[in-house]
Simulated assay, not measured.
Amino acid sequence: MSLLIGDVAPDFEAETTEGRIRFHDWAGKDWVIFFSHPADFTPVCTTELGYTAKLKGELSRRGTKALVISVDTLESHRAWIGDIEETQGAAVNFPIIADPEKKIATLYNMIHPGADAKVTVRAVYIVDPDKKIRASIIYPPSTGRNFDEILRLLDSLQLTDGYKVATPVNWKDGEDVIIAPSLQDFAEMQRLFPKGYKTVKPYLRLTPQPNKA
Rank of each mutant, 00 (worst) to 15 (best):
K131D: 03
F35W: 04
G144K: 02
T143F: 05
S136A: 12
T64M: 05
D25W: 14
E13C: 13
V177G: 09
G144F: 01
D11P: 04
T167S: 05
I33C: 00
G174H: 02
I69W: 04
A105R: 00
P210G: 08
A14P: 01
A91D: 15
A66R: 05
E58K: 03
E13T: 11
T73W: 10
P202E: 11
A91I: 12
E75L: 14
L183Y: 01
T207L: 00
T207S: 05
P10I: 00
Q190R: 15
Q184C: 06
P113W: 13
I81G: 02
D40M: 11
R191L: 09
D173Q: 13
W80R: 09
V200Q: 10
H24T: 11
V127E: 02
M189I: 00
L67E: 06
K212W: 15
M1W: 07
S36E: 01
D7H: 10
R205T: 09
Q190E: 13
V32L: 01
I5M: 14
R61V: 13
H77I: 11
R134V: 00
N93L: 05
P140M: 03
V8D: 10
A180Y: 07
P210L: 05
I111D: 02
I138S: 09
N170H: 12
S136H: 06
Q190A: 06
Q88F: 04
V44C: 02
Q190L: 13
F35M: 10
T160Q: 09
A9M: 03
H24W: 15
F193D: 00
A105M: 04
K132T: 10
D148S: 14
S156M: 07
L151S: 05
G50N: 09
P95A: 09
W80V: 12
E101P: 03
D116E: 07
L204N: 03
